[in-house]
Amino acid sequence: MAWFSGRNSPDDDASTTDPAFGWESRGFIASAIVVGAVVVCVVVWLVAGGGGNNPTAQPPASPDTVEPTEQPTSQPTGPPATPGEPTTRPTPPPVNTGTGGCKNKTPDLRIPRAAPPAVSWQFETDMLIPLQAQGGPASTDATGLRSCFAHSPTGAVLAAMVTLGQIRNPDLTESVLRSRIAPGVGRTRALSEVRSSPTPRNSGETSQFTGFKVIDYLPDRAIVSIAVRLDAQKVASLPVTLLWSGGDWKLVLQPDGSFNGEVAPDVLQSLEGYVRFGGA
């Protein structure tokens, strides 16, 4: 099963009149393999149709009725929230800490099979991102850029979600590319693209994180699949590669400046195999 792509298949004819597919015109998808489009819609993740208006496609199961197989939580890890209103439980970790995140000397190195505990979900523009005192982020600079994640599988999951959420904030996009993305050809191209085409503010439907799966983990590299709820019926997954570099997890961009290159997006039929993890 493929993961992501900037290319359309013959069945990828999502209606441009459907609000849930406002970003999915053929022109947009054709340009989505370059970083300008990826940065704009990094959490929409180029879901070109996914069978939504294809009469022969089977409708995907609702994420609200499907339980993962790996010790799921029965409810999201934070209280329901409305964009613009901060969550209140549990107490958020401090903005900067000398013991958590990348400063944690004894992180839990087990692959997480259940949602990380004691997580506070906070809004980054219109998307909820997870904060945990133990796993990170343990550092926030004056602009709001978050960093310093635990050198562990859970730390990699948190780093992926927080970075993907913050890169959508037009006030932070360039800072995220400079500080939270691993150096390479992809980052160089991304920085060039975002300078010439600044990230617009999102005014459409808001996607939210809903789960994760650690695909592979080594001390210097992690591959995490992040599940995102696009609407009440659709969940898409994005594989993210991270490198442990400079004492923190950094996300990797492909040479074309995108996260996925030419790999097709995966619209999930269920959350089977994923750990349910989301703030809304």
Rank of each mutant, 00 (worst) to 15 (best):
138 A>Q: 04
107 P>K: 06
120 S>H: 12
133 A>D: 09
168 R>T: 05
173 T>Q: 03
198 P>R: 13
115 A>Q: 04
223 I>V: 03
144 G>M: 10
106 T>Q: 11
190 A>T: 10
133 A>L: 15
192 S>Q: 11
163 T>F: 00
107 P>G: 03
202 N>Q: 13
205 E>A: 10
197 S>R: 15
109 L>I: 10
210 T>M: 13
190 A>V: 05
124 E>S: 03
179 S>T: 08
203 S>A: 11
159 A>V: 07
183 P>W: 12
176 V>K: 08
168 R>Q: 11
203 S>N: 11
140 T>S: 00
126 D>I: 14
209 F>Y: 09
200 P>C: 04
160 A>Q: 06
166 Q>C: 01
165 G>L: 02
146 R>D: 01
205 E>K: 15
141 D>E: 07
167 I>E: 06
159 A>K: 13
187 R>M: 00
208 Q>G: 09
141 D>M: 08
215 I>P: 05
159 A>D: 09
170 P>F: 06
205 E>N: 13
115 A>W: 03
189 R>S: 14
135 G>L: 15
108 D>A: 05
154 T>I: 02
105 K>I: 05
132 Q>V: 02
196 S>C: 05
164 L>M: 15
129 I>C: 07
206 T>A: 10
138 A>N: 04
153 P>D: 04
211 G>W: 02
155 G>R: 04
119 V>R: 00
156 A>F: 04
218 L>D: 13
128 L>F: 04
158 L>H: 09
126 D>V: 10
156 A>L: 06
195 R>G: 01
134 Q>V: 08
171 D>S: 13
195 R>A: 07
176 V>Q: 07
156 A>K: 05
124 E>Q: 03
112 P>A: 06
184 G>Q: 14
112 P>C: 12
116 P>F: 03
133 A>E: 09
173 T>L: 01
106 T>V: 01
215 I>D: 07
180 R>A: 01
139 S>L: 08
162 V>T: 13
129 I>A: 11
117 P>S: 06
210 T>W: 07
173 T>G: 07
217 Y>M: 14
221 R>L: 06
208 Q>R: 12
129 I>L: 00
197 S>Y: 12
216 D>G: 10
185 V>D: 05
142 A>F: 00
